[in-house]
């Protein structure tokens, strides 16, 4: 990469542009810990699988909210459709899981693409409404199309083949967790590439200032459609993963609750740096777990309370803390060189 004829300022620019691309110590540590959890926490694999799935859902939201500034209350639409698509595929076509993920991704992407045009005009308020409405429509469709989806009884009889024909899904969720974690990692790496690509920078331009983005030649609407579709594919994969690891789908996958979960998880961890969804998912599940430990039925009350406090205090704070820590680690690494 380093060119010999590069100006000193050119070299400086290369360094600046590379900064978000380089794997920092904190990032490496994060993923090492994730891998370690496979071996060190075998008893927790079921809940860790849920965390990984939630993290992918939040990651899909991060792509539109954190990088393109699009608020949504309807990510469950793509999640749920991905889940049902993967479930129906497993029942009617084949239980092969990897192609099932692709089916989920395609289903989520199609729904997102078809509804993205509703988001192009209007401010945040309208977008929140539209996304909420779309998810409500799909929920109702799934509810009424019981011949296809099982309706309120849920979709049953899903059987998933061993991954690559080798690893069977087991009751303790070991295979499911390793599978989910791998999918999460792959999706994360792709997202990391995308948000630091020219395409990703044009999204950030749209997020920060759509008026100026169009005035320097960024086709704003086309980029929003593209990222919303990508986000839909991610959500669809999250849904498909849910189907494959749970081997059962209820209408909950399309519910407002699901959309709200994704949004809460992302905002707890903080949007705009890709790790928010994962950190948020971990925090959210731990809180939920702790709360349901001492008040099994009413943990949601406390989650609500925490959410209210969190917003009142200012939801930037936890994210700022993480960013500060990462900057410190990165700075420490730079100093050692």
């Amino acid at each position: 990469m380093a060119k010999t004829d590069m100006t000193p300022n050119g070299a400086k620019v290369v360094k600046i542009m590379r900064r978000p691309v380089r794997w920092s110590l904190a990032e490496i540590a994060f993923w090492l810990l994730a891998v370690a959890s496979v071996f060190l926490l075998p008893g927790q694999h079921l809940i860790l699988t849920e965390i990984a799935g939630l993290a992918i859902l939040a990651l899909s939201l991060d792509l539109i909210l954190g990088y393109a500034g699009v608020v949504s209350l309807g990510q469950a639409a793509m999640y749920g459709v991905g889940a049902y698509a993967a479930g129906l595929y497993a029942i009617h076509v084949t239980g092969e899981p990897l192609s099932g993920l692709l089916v989920g991704a395609a289903a989520g992407a199609v729904i997102a693409f078809a509804t993205s045009f509703l988001l192009l005009r209007g401010a945040d308020l309208t977008r929140l409404m539209v996304t909420l409405g779309v998810a409500a429509v799909l929920f109702e469709v799934a509810n009424k199309a019981a011949w296809l989806t099982g309706g309120a009884d849920g979709l049953q009889g899903i059987w998933i083949d061993p991954i690559l024909g080798l690893f069977d899904f087991d009751l303790e969720g070991h295979t499911g967790y390793v599978y989910s974690l791998t999918v999460l990692f792959v999706l994360f790496v792709i997202a990391r590439l995308v948000v630091n690509s020219p395409f990703g920078y044009s999204l950030k331009a749209v997020r920060d200032n759509p008026l100026r983005a169009s005035a320097v030649g960024v086709p704003v609407n086309a980029r929003l459609v593209a990222v919303y579709t990508l986000s839909g594919a991610y959500a669809g994969i999250a849904g498909a993963l849910f189907t494959q690891t749970q081997q059962f789908i209820s209408l909950d996958v399309l519910s407002f609750q699901k959309s709200a979960d994704g949004l809460m998880v992302l905002t707890i961890g903080g949007p705009g740096y890709l790790y928010g969804g994962m950190i948020g998912a971990l925090a959210y599940k731990l809180i939920q777990d702790a709360l349901s430990g001492f008040t099994p039925q009413y943990w949601q009350f406390w989650v609500g309370l925490l959410l209210v406090i969190f917003v009142l205090v200012g939801r930037d704070r936890p994210r700022q803390f993480v960013i500060d820590v990462m900057a410190r680690l990165r700075g420490g690494k730079g100093g050692a060189q």
Partner: peptide, 13 residues
């Protein structure tokens, strides 16, 4: 015309 390139880092153009 690289605004749609998603497969490479921006600094590598």
């Amino acid at each position: 015309g690289h605004g749609r390139d998603w497969w490479r880092f921006a600094g590598k153009l």
